[in-house]
Design a binder for these strands. Structure first.
Lengths: 197, 197
DNA sequence: CAGATGACAGATTTCAATTTTTGTCATCTG
DNA sequence: CAGATGACAAAAATTGAAATCTGTCATCTG
């Protein structure tokens, strides 16, 4: 079978994701991954130097799926304010979906957050960069007030301000009643802060 | 000795705080507290039904010291915007001081946060209430724009938005370089959102 | 008799022995 | 000879027995 024969990083990531889904981050071992692929664990180590690197690669792929989907909103043609609202709403929705659909992968992600892994930092920087692009456009068009802060600093502030609705540390609260109203109130406040008078 | 003779809740709390400071939340036992007081652990249980109740009482007292100090800012005579800025800055400063000066009590507090204890919820409600009073006054005076949200909802939004600078989950980042600039940027954004055009 | 005590049962934690896992590498194989 | 293998040492996790801790309560004491 030519398609499944070669042991590629891609195939290993696929198998690792599956193993993580089944066993969770605490129980999943490299030997499990090797077994799922029908190879020895030594072969897995040929492609990923450590177990940590493997976990990070899986998480990165998983997080990138969110970034990619959000970048569609950034590239949209609606006015910046609308895109910013949609972007924040979609980020919140995506995170909620991730907890609900993939609790084990979400737990893996939270392990990396706890270790403040480079992967998580890159993901955050990615998202803040997307925000900065929307805000930059809003400033240029005059929709947003030219505050004395740079688009990057504003983006960071918006990201921080909405942390309760995307930081995994708060995942437990995402099912609370009233959470949507609180999200709406916060987004309104932040957007009033950005908007030109 | 009349002053130290009676076994009062107050004396127990004092001793518990000391034991927690020395051993941390993981190692401190009720027997340690009793030993520090020179009584049997049964006597401690006469005043606090469980070890959890004792931990919560200590934490509550500790958190109340912050609330009380902040309520001075709420009662001040400066314009609401100034008080809001000061209140947020003092909350951030107080939390930083707490981590630095009392790491073990801070760790105890974080245990309760993890258990979403009633004490922590009361503390949060307390703080949001203080914010709401400042915001209410600002709305009445016309300094803040009468958004379609209630002072309480606005207060909650402000509290959530500034979480990175008071939620203990972020304590690790409070020493990062640039944190003060990020705090300032976020406060500016939030205050622009509140301010009347 | 109000309040303290400490023996006690059950729950939890600790610690050391054992097992499993990680990561390396000399060897093998197609 | 590129890539896979599995034996191996060191590190980490698991296990189960022993020790400690929590919470109760019958008893004691000033």
């Amino acid at each position: 079978m030519a398609t499944t024969d070669a042991l590629t990083p891609e195939r290993i990531l696929e198998a690792t994701e599956e193993v993580l889904r089944r066993h969770g981050p605490a129980k999943a071992t490299v030997v499990d991954v090797a077994r799922a692929l029908g190879v020895s664990h030594g072969s897995v180590y040929r492609h990923f130097r450590t177990k940590t690197a493997l976990r990070e690669a899986v998480t990165q792929r998983w997080l990138d799926r969110t970034s990619t989907s959000l970048s569609g909103v950034v590239a949209g043609s609606e006015p910046p304010e609308t895109r910013l609202r949609r972007w924040l709403a979609e980020l919140f929705a995506a995170k909620r979906r991730k907890v609900g659909d993939d609790p084990e992968l979400f737990a893996t992600y939270m392990v990396l957050v706890g270790e403040s892994s480079a992967v998580v930092n890159r993901h955050r920087a990615d998202l803040v960069g997307q925000l900065a692009r929307i805000i930059h456009e809003g400033l240029e068009r005059g929709d947003f007030a030219p505050a004395d802060a740079s688009p990057e600093a504003l983006a960071r502030a918006v990201f921080d301000a909405t942390g309760r609705f995307h930081d995994p540390a708060y995942a437990r609260e995402w099912g609370d009643p009233g959470i949507d109203a609180e999200f709406a109130a916060l987004v309104d406040l932040v957007l009033r802060g950005l908007r030109a008078p």
